[in-house]
């Protein structure tokens, strides 16, 4: 069994308690229009090209045999003198990845840190992450999830983590479907499981201007969280115009479909109203 990941980032300071390593799993069932990790959407390896520092030497194109359609063969990667090209998406067995992550066990232990599985969407590779999480037992394990997966999978994942960071993007079902491509019914169902699980969790809301930064959406979200003793806090992540940074690098256009220049409404009164601890990052 293999999983596919698109990055491993050491020294993550915003992805859970202590200093952590975050694994970014490749592939996601949602298609949020504001997604800032577009290389995390597809489940297959793909070519990623940075323009910065390109000397236009043309060596990549000289080498390319699939000019019509890139097949991510990686031939061009090996000739770029500036190292601006790479194949994003590496396959690992749970054993291989666990071994790599466990090398830094001493560092996690010294700092009350651990490992966070993020993405993409980690629960979209359920067998792999459960096998991986089992191998990481004894280390603080966190998952960052959009919550969109079959409830039994979600429950199993919950059984194998110590901490959950879950996104709640929109409470209105139709709006959710419009902006992310999927209904939020599974997500809300999984939220109920999460609340009952007793696992400490954080709710994260990427605040998108004019999409979900309204008082109405915030108050609906807050309303769902009043009965959760295990909720640590709500974290608001105001949209930033750099979200589209990586689209060009994977040869895609960033078409968010909302006014990216509009100011984000970071008002937190909706959460205050319900006495829910809230942070704006």
């Amino acid at each position: 069994m293999k999983g596919i990941i698109f990055d491993i980032k050491q020294m993550a300071v915003f992805d859970g308690p202590g200093i952590r390593t975050t694994v970014f799993m490749k592939g996601c069932p949602l298609r949020c229009r504001w997604c800032h990790n577009p290389e995390g959407l597809s489940f297959t390896p793909q070519l990623m090209v940075s323009d910065n520092g390109c000397q236009k030497c043309g060596k990549c194109m000289d080498k390319c045999e699939h000019k019509d359609k890139c097949i991510s063969c990686g031939e061009c990667v090996r000739v770029c003198p500036m190292h601006l090209r790479r194949i994003v998406g590496t396959e690992y067995t749970p054993e291989e990845l666990a071994a790599r992550l466990l090398k830094d066990k001493v560092i996690y232990e010294m700092n009350g840190g651990g490992i966070t599985l993020s993405g993409g969407e980690p629960t979209a590779q359920p067998e792999f992450i459960i096998a991986l999480l089992k191998k990481l037992e004894g280390i603080h394990r966190a998952v960052e999830t959009c919550g969109y997966c079959a409830p039994d999978i979600f429950r199993t994942v919950l059984d194998h983590v110590d901490y959950v960071m879950m996104d709640l993007k929109l409470i209105d079902e139709k709006q959710h479907e419009y902006w992310t491509g999927k209904s939020n019914r599974l997500i809300l169902q999984n939220l109920e499981q999460l609340k009952k699980s007793g696992k400490p969790f954080v709710i994260r809301i990427p605040l998108i201007p004019g999409v979900n930064d309204t008082y109405e959406n915030k108050v609906q979200t807050a309303g769902l969280l009043t009965d959760a003793d295990n909720l640590q806090f709500v974290e608001l992540l105001p949209y930033h115009t750099t979200a589209g940074a990586k689209y060009g690098m994977i040869d895609r256009c960033y078409e968010p479909g909302f006014d990216t220049d509009r100011a984000v409404d970071t008002d937190i009164s909706a959460f205050k109203k319900y006495d829910i601890p809230v942070k704006v990052l």
């Binding site: 980032k9 993550a12 915003f14 800032h36 990790n37 994260r204 990427p206 992540l237 949209y239 930033h240 750099t242 979200a243 940074a245 990586k246 990052l281």
Partner: peptide, 8 residues
């Protein structure tokens, strides 16, 4: 650099 909710 930390760009938004992510580091790059």
């Amino acid at each position: 650099v930390r760009v938004w909710g992510w580091s790059g």
